[in-house]
Structure formats: C-alpha cells, structure tokens
Nucleic acid binder design. Structure first.
Lengths: 122, 122
DNA sequence: CAGTATCCTGGGGGATACTG
DNA sequence: CAGTATCCCCCAGGATACTG
C-alpha cells in the first residue's frame, strides 16, 4: 500500500492483503475474543456455539502459525491442551474489540438498511 | 452474544455473526478505505490493484445493501456512477482504520512467526 | 463507462466417523 | 480430551467475453 499524490492505492503485492485475509475472518475474531484467558480446546469449542472440531482446529492452527496464540500441551491424563494469546495476539484484541463493538452497536441499523434494499429490489 | 457468569459465549444466533462475515472481508475493507471521498467505479477499481470487475461490483452491491455506501448515477454521457460513504459507513472507517494500522505495524513480525512455524513443521 | 453473463476452480467449512 | 481422516457441497472469486 502506498499513498501517492493521486491518493490511496492498494497494491496487489502489499503483504497486508493475505494477513487481513487470514486474520479478519469470523472464527478467528471469535476465538481471539474468547481467549481473554488461557482456555482448553473444548472450553473454547463450547463457547463458540456451532463451530465444528475441524474448523476450530484449523482456526487455532492458523492463529498459532501467525503468532497470535500459543498451544501448550498439559501433562495430564488424558492429554490436555491449553491455548493462550501471545503479546502479539493480545495487541490485536483492541482493534478487534473496536470492530466488534461497532458491529453490536449498528446491527439494528444495518438490518434495517438490508430490508430497505431488498424491498426496493424485490 | 452474551456474557454469563461463566464467561463469554458466542451464540450461533447472534446477529453480529453474519454482519461480521459480510463486513470484515478483505475487499470490503479496501473499498471503504479508498472511499475517503466520492469516487467513480473505475477510479475505485484502479486503486484496488488486482480486483476484477465482477468482484468489485459484488463488493459494492453488498456494501450498498448494508447501508455503508451510496450509489449515485451521474447524468453524464457516457453514464457515470459515483460511490460515497454514508454516515454509517463513515463510522466504520475508524475501527477499520485501527485494524488496518495494526496489520501494517505487525506485518513483519507475523511473517517472521509464520516462517518459524513452517520451519518447525518442515 | 460501468456494468452483466458465463464458465470454472480452489478451498472454506459442515457432517460424520475414528483414535492415541 | 483433543484431535485426525474422509467425504462432500457450495460459493467466493478469477478469467474472459459481451453490452446499453
């Protein structure tokens, strides 16, 4: 991304593009929100109603790969795994929180606009 | 979404879920960022290097449906179309800006973490 | 200029079953 | 408990061609 005198241009090779793609998705945001403290796999799963094991695992792996969370195997029997935010992940919670708060605040108006639009287009 | 005494739980019927799905995607964020002032279709397209007409049109329609932008047909020849943010869309730029700024600030560290992870997993 | 109209492909994500 | 392993389906999104 650059800002030439002609205005903002988003270049296709800007590394923020794939990052945004990996980070700004529904499940990642919810996982991050849920990890306000270290939690175990099934604990996270229970808090994200409707997520499947497979999708949750993928999401956790991706977040781990991007340095947002740490996976720690607990020496228990049966095995336990605990996920927690890294400082990097912690620093993302603030912008995520803003976006989520905005969504909650404006959900009603958005749904109203959607209905207007759909009514016009029939 | 609720916050019971046991902690945060994201219910599957929370209306913010589909909203986030529609709003927090790569192209929507870039379109919103580019619309710092009213711009015409091809102007937006030129600033989003790599986007196809089809995808841009879809993104613009969705943003319009959600009340984020307004589409205005200009009485020119040949026809011109101008897109601009609504107050609602304007209010979303701040949280988006935060998220984008975070991405830019942390892109290097994220890529480093990715390489670490990939090296470990080979 | 600002779009539709087709066609096509990858992969996100749900369902289900199995396991160290 | 915390995962893999399959199977499958849908559709976001790219490529390309055409148009009022």
């Amino acid at each position: 991304m650059t800002t030439p005198e002609t205005g903002i241009v988003y270049r296709s090779d800007c590394p923020s593009r794939p990052i945004l793609d990996q980070i700004a998705d529904k499940w990642s945001m919810m996982v991050m929100a849920v990890l306000d403290e270290p939690r175990r796999f099934n604990d996270v799963k229970r808090r994200l109603e409707g997520v499947t094991q497979r999708v949750l695992t993928q999401t956790l792996r991706r977040l781990e790969r991007n340095g947002m969370i740490v996976r720690r195997v607990l020496p228990t029997s049966p095995i336990g795994v605990e996920y927690s935010l890294t400082p990097l992940g912690e620093s993302l919670r603030e912008p995520f929180g803003r976006l989520y708060a905005w969504t909650v605040e404006n959900v009603d108006e958005i749904q109203a606009r959607q209905q207007d639009y759909d009514r016009r287009a029939q």
